[in-house]
Write a protein that binds this DNA or RNA. Structure first.
Lengths: 180, 180
DNA sequence: GTCTATACTTCGATAGAC
DNA sequence: GTCTATCGAAGTATAGAC
């Protein structure tokens, strides 16, 4: 009897991989570990993701989707560029305070693979660039100059790599900058 | 005939390792690669550094010494806490603009080995904590509050992980914050 | 006695085969 | 799903040059 392929297998594998990659780093996690946590055979994993780079790229793409959804949700209740900028940073600040937070997945990947030009690196750089572009757009709508955008991005960068205690400091500061 | 031990061998090896570790990451660089670049035998390497962790710890300790020397040199010409804070950040900003800059060695290590508690990790966390303490002390001397110290540290964090173009933005901002 | 070079061991990784 | 081929890495041991 032909066995019905289980739907959502790809998601199961990807979720397991994402958890491990984010927590321990992409380099530190082996495919065997992913198989173990996903509870599937090695066969299936390599069927869905022909190489580790493919899996890493999918992991970062998933992370991107999650970030974008969280951002969109945060922006939903904000009116105008000022509120939107605050909401944007507030969402990041909040995420850094969640248990298990280990920094920005995209920045982490680029630190683990400096100078990489493979697919995961492209996904990571792409997200960072697009993310920065959103800030630029909102600042422009606000009527702010390039300096304000640079400063906000500087805080966002610091927020991602600093300790979670910085979350409130960053948020308050952004609020102050934007309201002015 | 007894051969005279070459002095400075340890430094030669360490310099080679440091260059590789910083550029490509500690995980990505193998001991064989270090041997190759250092131009010595494997035996000698393991005599001076019994394990890769020892070598990594020595690399970060060297990085710390270099940072401290650069910081001390920058602080030498500064009078009072305000000027010293500016000089401190100016030195960091300048360093991020040097060719070959690949981020903060200590933050990078901790990103490569999240949650590590080995000797290199202790060195990295130690430097970061001491570095932060210097900022706190200078801010206190300046008569500033904890918020100002947090904000300065936020900028320093952002400066380390952001693009080099942020250097001037960060420096100007610190100057403005401290002069007030 | 100190160094280089190299062979070797063990281990874990990716990836593919069955 | 297990089994295996292949590779690279850490670390050790040995042989030989100076």
């Amino acid at each position: 009897m032909a066995r019905t392929p289980v739907p959502g297998t790809r998601d199961t594998i990807l979720t397991a991989a994402a958890g491990l990659f984010y927590r321990y780093g992409v380099r530190a996690v082996g495919m065997a570990q992913v198989v173990e946590v996903a509870g599937c055979g090695k066969n299936l994993l390599y069927r869905h993701f022909p190489s580790k780079a493919d899996l890493a790229a999918a992991y970062l793409t998933l992370a991107r989707r999650e970030r974008e959804q969280a951002t969109a949700a945060a922006l939903r209740w904000a009116n105008g560029p000022a509120e939107q900028l605050v909401a944007l940073v507030a969402e990041i600040a909040e995420s850094t305070r969640r248990p298990g937070y280990r920094g920005c997945a995209f920045r982490n990947y680029l630190t683990e693979f400096p100078g990489a030009t493979d697919e995961p690196a492209r996904v990571a750089r792409g997200y960072l660039a697009d993310s920065r572009a959103v800030v630029d757009r909102l600042v422009a709508e606000l009527g702010g100059d390039a300096l304000l955008a640079d400063r906000i991005w500087l805080i966002v960068d610091g927020l991602h790599s600093g300790p979670p205690e910085q979350a409130r400091v960053a948020l308050d500061w952004i609020t102050e900058l934007v309201r002015r």
